[in-house]
Nucleic acid binder design. Sequence first.
DNA 1: CCAGTCACG
DNA 2: ACGTACGTGACTGGC
Length: 882
Amino acid sequence: MAKKLLLIDGNSVAFRAFFALHNQLDRFVNADGLHTNAIYGFNTMLDHMIKAVEPTDMLVAFDAGKTTFRTAMFDNYKGGRAKTPSEFSEQMPYIEQLLDAYGIQHYKLKDYEADDIIGTLAGQADAAGYTTTVVTGDRDLTQLTTDHTTVAVTVKGVSEVERYTPAHVQEKLGITATQIIDMKGLTGDTSDNYPGVTKVGEKTALKLLKQYGSVEGVYENVADMKQSKMKEHLIEDHDLAVRAKVLATIKRDAPITVGLADLAYAGPNIDQLAEFYQTMDFQSFLKKLKVNNAEPVAPIDYTVLTKENLPELAQFKTAVEFYLEMPTANYHTSAFAGFAIGHAGKWYISRDVELLLQPAVAEMLASDTIKKNVFDMKRTIVGLNRLGLSLGTVDFDLLLVSYLLDTNDNSNDLGNLAEQHGYTELPTDEEVYGKGVKRAIPDDDKLFFSHLARKLAAIAALHAELMQKLDENEQTPLYDDIEKPMARVLAQMEIAGITVDSGTLQAMGSQFKERLSEIEQKIYQEAGQEFNINSPKQLGKILFEDMKLPVIKKTKTGYSTAVDVLEKLAPEAPIVANILQYRQISKIQSTYVVGLLDAIHSSDQKVHTRYLQTLTQTGRLSSVDPNLQNIPVRLEEGRKIRQAFVPSHAGWQIFSSDYSQIELRVLAHITHDANLQAAFKEGDDIHAATAMRIFNLKSPEEVTPNIRRQAKAVNFGIVYGISDYGLSQNIGITRKQAKAFIDAYFKEYPGVKQYMTDIVKQAHEQGYVETISHRRRYLPDIHAKSFNQRSFAERTAMNTPIQGSAADIIKIAMIKMQAKLKAAGLKATMLLQVHDELIFEAPKEEISTLEKLVPSVMDSAVKLEVPLKVESHFGDTWYDAK
DNA sequence: CCAGTCACG
DNA sequence: ACGTACGTGACTGGC
């Protein structure tokens, strides 16, 4: 049998695992007080790689200690590194225990690093005809890539890896694997603390290597290079480059005392592993171990509900768990598969949803004194509504609470979510119902009913614990006063739906169809051949190979044909303008004409979107099936789609109100910046005000449209967590100019600058950031070693409180709005939310009332240090409400 | 099922 | 030196 070898860089992967689960450091502690996050993450990676590779042989290599032959030759090698956290070091011996239980060889060698052990064994394995996979968190090991050795570098967390093959290295860097060593030779390595040639970074190094092949090649030719700073640096730093290359080179001949023959992997010792998991308190791994050994979760008792035993439900007086099973995601149309009601370990189950209509059940559901504990109350409300039923007071919604505790736990599967909270007695829907085309509700009553009973049991088991966590996080008001009422408001909006006139869409569709075929013909003519314009691959070939247009940008897979690229090319060839036109219309046609027509319910001529309340990382909503939050508006062509959105009654109109500059107002509020606040209090045009400040203009007349546009981009940039490069790309200026703009901005708005510094610091110390309503977002990457990942987390830290607080504000406004409409006895109905905008339909007579009421509710939703401003519009269609 | 593209705030 | 704007969803082509 073909030999498949899996080599793992133990220290590096463990370290990755440690930081991947760093924000949950407190959760991963066993009964002995030992931190276990790195052990847990390491195990996850191990399972994942064993499954992916199916190795016949395995070894995990560890570093032996601080001193190696590399420190002997350069005593500052890996110097200046932050001290290894003790929470991490204490876990290492247990990772070795884990490997023993798994029956996996592990090895360390004095004076050598794990890399060298791996390099040596991988070399031997290549020679012996093995297929080898190396797993590491360290990109340096990609130099080991060969035709038979793949290097898998962990990218995010521990179970996602990027696989380096010779082709991938070539594609990504444009050099061979062994040239990676030369690259390090030229650039040095800051994380290992050795320098290369001054001012030579990856870009320069790649250029040099493509021309001269290696460090030696570079120096053979250095004399002939034309005079430049780089040449001087190269000559100056020759010794450094030579040393860096040696330091970067992984040994292929380390004096190891294990050989390929010692590495056979035969699978874990189940008993030993179970005992280890027990000590570590790894419930989910224990469960998996049992599942893999065909031992199912513990059987569960339940009662099949019938008309006869219905009276027994009366024993539940104060609270019930309730679950309504709808097998497909879209609960507006899904079938009903069954339901479950219960309390304190007594579970009543039925497939027959008609039973819910029995007064005993219907009243219990509608009751406000018998509190309901559920998973996804919005889904439940909409489902019950289709049966003519209502859902009274909800106490605990496992989905909502999990989302508030950690926005990353946004799985829509109860089993999955329960497991994330350490509850392992509930399989996932996928495990019970299957996936893809095979997904189906089981015919077997026992299987299906047990699953529903277990769902209730999971809700019950997690109730108290999660509510307490919510409280500890000071998030109870966020849950009680915002998210729970929000779910009801959203349910009502989804149920109401918005009427879409299919005639209007169809008429637009046939027009677009004609125009598309005209443009298509022109494009074929200009290209001299027919091809699929919608295929970026084919289009790229036509433009950049056949027509030889200049390549502006590349993607991972080929030439980029994105708008910004095509716009630059437009002057070069008339075909480009036609392609842009084609793209624009074909987008409108496929997504908004055809897509929207497909989404209209034939029963009422309406579209009923679903708002996902537990998805975004910031607290915003998202909208699916169809997405009504991205209906075109910027270009007139697409904006016309809005003419198809009409009121559901004759004599009604569409009314819309939106917050003006809500994110910048939130910024002014949370930064307390006096200058920014003054601008809003004066009612200034904020972009013009920013322009006057950062460009040092004396009078408003000096603010030209172009200057205002640039200032607007700066304002946006600030909200997004600014970088000079991002700003320069956005408005087409040099990075230097962009930096000058940003510096000027921070000088004029010192409060904003202070906030940006403070919030990043806070994210570092706490591991998360918060909105004005204590909505929380964890940012594990804030500790990442990679500049890229860390920078991203820092920008997120700056942006999330702003975007998230704006989301909080409009949610509060929506809840108040709904109540006001009801209290005032208005027929007006709230239909849509588009992040900073609310859309209603209302009888014409109510419009003048709404013009006062809606803005007053919205601008008083919360009290900020600056006023909130709201603008309203109305008309016969959504298009006309402008 | 992923990548590219493009629609929105 | 690093390589970027923040948050989403739908459609298409191509593996």
